[in-house]
Lab assay of single mutants.
Amino acid sequence: GLTEEQKQEIREAFDLFDTDGSGTIDAKELKVAMRALGFEPKKEEIKKMISEIDKDGSGTIDFEEFLTMMTA
């Protein structure tokens, strides 16, 4: 499992990506986040990433899903 410290770091990354503070990361926010990390993702790639992570089919990534992605 994760230490509380690791969870906190992932939470901070999540909050950075969640620019509108909605508690979820949408495609637009993910794209901005990827760019910040030096990637140039295409729209299809973003969609694919979200569909792989987005277990509940909401079209957005919540913290639990993000946590799973970061620790996979």
Score class of each variant (00 low, 15 high):
Gly1Tyr: 07
Gly1Cys: 14
Leu2Lys: 04
Thr3His: 04
Thr3Val: 02
Thr3Pro: 04
Glu4Ser: 10
Glu4Ile: 09
Glu5Ile: 12
Glu5Gln: 13
Glu5Met: 11
Glu5Pro: 06
Glu5Trp: 10
Glu5Leu: 09
Glu5Cys: 14
Gln6Asn: 07
Gln6Met: 11
Gln6Thr: 06
Gln6His: 10
Gln6Ser: 07
Lys7Cys: 11
Lys7Ser: 05
Gln8Ala: 11
Gln8Asn: 09
Glu9Cys: 15
Glu9Pro: 05
Glu9Ile: 14
Ile10Phe: 12
Ile10Thr: 04
Ile10Tyr: 14
Ile10Trp: 15
Arg11Gly: 01
Arg11Phe: 04
Arg11Cys: 05
Arg11His: 03
Glu12Tyr: 10
Glu12Cys: 14
Glu12Thr: 14
Glu12Trp: 15
Glu12Arg: 13
Ala13Arg: 06
Asp15Pro: 01
Asp15Met: 11
Asp15Trp: 07
Leu16Val: 06
Leu16Arg: 13
Phe17Ser: 09
Phe17Trp: 10
Phe17Ile: 14
Asp18Tyr: 03
Asp18Pro: 01
Asp18Phe: 06
Asp18Met: 05
Asp18Ala: 04
Asp18Gly: 01
Asp18Ser: 03
Thr19Tyr: 14
Thr19Met: 11
Thr19Gly: 05
Asp20Leu: 04
Asp20Pro: 01
Asp20Ile: 03
Gly21His: 14
Gly21Asn: 07
Gly21Trp: 03
Gly21Thr: 03
Gly21Ser: 07
Ser22Met: 05
Gly23Ser: 05
Gly23Pro: 00
Thr24Ala: 07
Thr24Ile: 05
Thr24Arg: 11
Ile25Phe: 01
Ile25Asp: 00
Ile25Arg: 00
Ile25Gly: 00
Ile25Tyr: 00
Asp26Tyr: 04
Asp26Gln: 08
Asp26Cys: 09
Ala27Gly: 05
Ala27Phe: 13
Ala27Thr: 12
Lys28Arg: 07
Lys28Asp: 15
Lys28Ala: 11
Glu29Ala: 13
Glu29Trp: 11
Leu30Met: 06
Leu30Arg: 00
Leu30Asp: 00
Leu30His: 00
Lys31Ile: 15
Lys31Thr: 14
Lys31Glu: 15
Lys31Trp: 15
Val32Trp: 13
Val32Thr: 13
Val32Cys: 15
Ala33Phe: 12
Ala33Val: 15
Ala33Gln: 02
Ala33Lys: 02
Ala33His: 02
Ala33Thr: 03
Met34Thr: 01
Met34Lys: 00
Arg35Gly: 07
Arg35Trp: 04
Ala36Tyr: 14
Ala36Ile: 12
Ala36Thr: 07
Ala36Arg: 12
Leu37Asn: 03
Leu37Pro: 02
Leu37Met: 12
Leu37Val: 06
Gly38Ile: 01
Gly38Phe: 01
Phe39Ile: 10
Phe39Ser: 02
Phe39Met: 08
Phe39Tyr: 13
Phe39Asn: 02
Glu40Asn: 15
Glu40Pro: 03
Pro41Asn: 06
Pro41His: 11
Lys42Trp: 09
Lys42Ala: 12
Lys42Arg: 10
Lys42Gln: 11
Lys42Glu: 15
Lys43Asn: 15
Lys43Glu: 15
Lys43His: 13
Lys43Cys: 14
Glu44Ser: 11
Glu44Arg: 05
Glu45Lys: 06
Glu45Trp: 14
Glu45Tyr: 11
Glu45Gln: 09
Glu45Ala: 10
Glu45Phe: 13
Ile46Cys: 11
Ile46Gly: 02
Ile46Tyr: 05
Ile46Lys: 02
Ile46Glu: 03
Lys47Gly: 05
Lys47Phe: 06
Lys47Glu: 15
Lys47Thr: 13
Lys48Asn: 08
Lys48Thr: 05
Lys48Asp: 06
Met49Asn: 03
Met49Thr: 03
Met49Cys: 13
Ile50Val: 06
Ile50Trp: 06
Ile50Asn: 02
Ile50His: 02
Ser51Gln: 12
Ser51His: 12
Ser51Tyr: 04
Glu52His: 13
Glu52Trp: 15
Glu52Lys: 12
Ile53Asp: 02
Ile53Pro: 02
Ile53Val: 11
Asp54Ser: 12
Asp54Thr: 09
Lys55Ile: 10
Lys55Gly: 08
Asp56Met: 09
Asp56Ile: 07
Asp56Ser: 12
Asp56Gln: 07
Gly57Ser: 05
Ser58Thr: 12
Ser58Pro: 03
Ser58Phe: 07
Ser58Cys: 06
Gly59Ile: 06
Gly59Gln: 06
Thr60Ala: 08
Thr60Met: 08
Ile61Met: 04
Asp62Thr: 15
Asp62Arg: 11
Asp62Gly: 07
Asp62Ile: 04
Asp62Trp: 04
Asp62Leu: 05
Phe63Gln: 01
Phe63Ala: 01
Glu64His: 07
Glu64Pro: 05
Glu64Gln: 10
Glu65Asn: 06
Glu65Val: 08
Glu65Pro: 00
Phe66Ala: 00
Phe66Val: 03
Leu67Asn: 01
Leu67Glu: 02
Leu67Thr: 02
Thr68Lys: 12
Thr68Val: 07
Thr68Ser: 12
Thr68Asn: 14
Thr68Glu: 12
Met69Gly: 04
Met69Lys: 02
Met69Cys: 14
Met69Arg: 04
Met70His: 02
Met70Tyr: 07
Met70Arg: 01
Thr71Tyr: 06
Thr71His: 05
Thr71Phe: 07
Ala72Ser: 11
Ala72Ile: 11
